[in-house]
Design a protein around this nucleic acid. Structure first.
Lengths: 218, 218
DNA sequence: TGTACATCAGTGAACGCGCGTTCACTGATGTAC
DNA sequence: TGTACATCAGTGAACGCGCGTTCACTGATGTAC
C-alpha cells in the first residue's frame, strides 16, 4: 500500500484551507492535525504552494471531468434551439451536480473551491486566474458557451457581467455554507444540507440569468 | 490643523486592504506607502486590529446612516402593500445608492466592505459577525425587514437563504469589480464604472428575489 | 543464500526572515506662575 | 515677559515570535551479484 501520510496531509490541509484560507493556515497546524512530521509536507509536496496545488488538483480534476462529460451529453441530447427557464435550470443543474459529486468525495473541497475562485478574481492574482484557465478552463468555457446560447438577448459584454454576477451567488453560497447552515439551525431550528442549497441555487441563478439588461452603455 | 498622518495611514491602509486583504497586508507596506513611520500605526491606532477597525468604521458609519435615512423615507412614502418587481428594484436601489455614496468618498471602501462581509461569514469568525451586527446591524436589519415584506410568499427560513444568495451576488461583484472591469476592458474594449454595475445588480437581485422556492424541507 | 549497496519515507532540530509590537527618545507646542 | 514643566506627534532601533524551509540523519525495504 502507498503511504497514508500523503492522504492524511491532503485531508487535513483541505479542512484547514476551507476553514481559514491558504495564507492563514500554517504547515504546523496541518501537520499536527494530520499527526505527521512538519517536514513531511516539504518532503512530499516540495513546498506549501505545492501542497495547495495538490489539494486543489484533487477535486478540480474530477470536477472538470464530470462537468465536461455531462455537458457534452446535454449538448447532444437537447435541441438547443429552445430557450427558456427550463433550459437554464437544466444547465445550472449540471453544474450543481458536478459540485455535489465532488463534495461527496471530499466534504470541504467546495469551500476550498470557492476560496480559490475568490482569490482568482482578486487584484494582483491574475497569474492564478491564468493558471486555472490554462489547466481547467476548457470545461468551464464549455459551460459558458452553452449558457451563452440560452441567453441570446445579450451582447458578449453583457453576458460576461451577468455570468459573473451568477458566479458570485454560487461562490458566496459555497464559501459561507457552513456558517449559514449553523445560523439557520440556531435561528430556525431547521437543518439544511448541500443538496437543498444546490437546488435553491439552480432556481435562483436560472431566474437571475433572465433579469432585464440595463440600457446601452456608451 | 489636525495631523494628516492619521488620514494618510487610513487612505493607504484602505487601498492595501482592498487589494490584498487584512492579513496579507503588513504594517510595513502601509506605512511605507503612506510615507509614515512604522511605529505611527501603533501610536495612533494602538494595534493593527485598531487600524482595521478605524478603516472600516470610516465608511460603515456613513453607509449605515445613509441607508437608514433612505429606508425610513421609503417606508413612509410608499404604500408597502403593493408588491412586485418594481418595489424590489426600488429597495435594492436604495442599497445600491448607499454603496455608491460611500464609494464617492473613499474609492476602495466597497472592496474592503466586501472583504469584511466575506470574512464575517467564514467559519471561526463568528465574533466578527456578532460585532458587526451589534455595531451596525440595525440599518441592515431594517433593510431586511422591508425586503421581507416584499417577499411574503416565503417562510422565514426560505427568506433567510434567499437573502444570503443575493448578498453573495453583491459581495462578489463588489470584491471582484476591479478585476472584472480590467478583464472587460481588455476583452471587449468597453469600460464600466460602478454606477453601471450597481444598476445591473439591482435588476439581477430583484429578479433573483422572485425565483421560485424549492419544495418543502422536512 | 548471504552480503553490499541504493532507494525511499520519515524525522528532529535548526535556520533565516518578516511580522506586529515596544521602548527610550526627540522636538515642537501649550500652559502655569 | 521669562522660565519651568507638561503634553503630544512622531521616530529609530530593537524585541520576541511564528512562519516556511533546510539539512543531516535514521531505519526499513528492495536490488545486484
Amino acid at each position: 500500500m502507498t503511504s497514508s501520510t500523503i492522504d492524511r496531509i491532503l485531508d487535513a490541509a483541505e479542512v484547514e484551507f476551507a476553514a481559514h484560507g491558504f495564507v492563514e493556515t500554517s504547515l504546523r497546524t496541518i501537520t499536527s492535525k494530520a499527526k505527521v512530521n512538519l517536514a513531511a509536507v516539504n518532503y512530499h509536496f516540495g513546498s506549501k504552494k505545492g501542497l495547495i496545488q495538490a489539494v486543489t488538483d484533487r477535486f478540480l480534476g474530477p470536477l472538470t471531468q464530470n462537468l465536461q462529460a455531462q455537458l457534452s451529453a446535454y449538448e447532444q441530447s437537447s435541441h438547443k434551439s429552445t430557450i427558456g427557464e427550463q433550459e437554464l435550470q437544466a444547465l445550472f443543474g449540471i453544474l450543481a451536480r458536478s459540485c455535489q459529486q465532488v463534495a461527496q468525495q471530499n466534504q470541504h473541497s467546495l469551500a476550498v473551491f470557492a476560496r480559490l475562485i475568490n482569490m482568482a478574481y482578486s487584484q494582483s492574482q491574475g497569474h492564478l486566474r491564468k493558471h486555472l484557465t490554462y489547466q481547467y478552463g476548457s470545461s468551464f468555457l464549455y459551460f459558458m458557451k452553452l449558457l451563452r446560447q440560452h441567453m441570446p438577448v445579450m451582447n458578449n459584454e453583457q453576458f460576461f457581467w451577468r455570468f459573473h454576477y451568477l458566479l458570485g451567488t454560487l461562490v458566496f453560497a459555497l464559501s459561507s455554507s457552513e456558517s449559514l447552515v449553523a445560523i439557520c439551525e440556531r435561528e430556525y431550528e431547521v437543518s439544511r444540507n448541500l443538496d437543498q442549497i444546490m437546488s435553491d441555487l439552480v432556481l435562483v441563478m436560472a431566474r437571475a440569468a433572465q433579469a432585464p439588461i440595463t440600457g446601452e452603455y456608451k
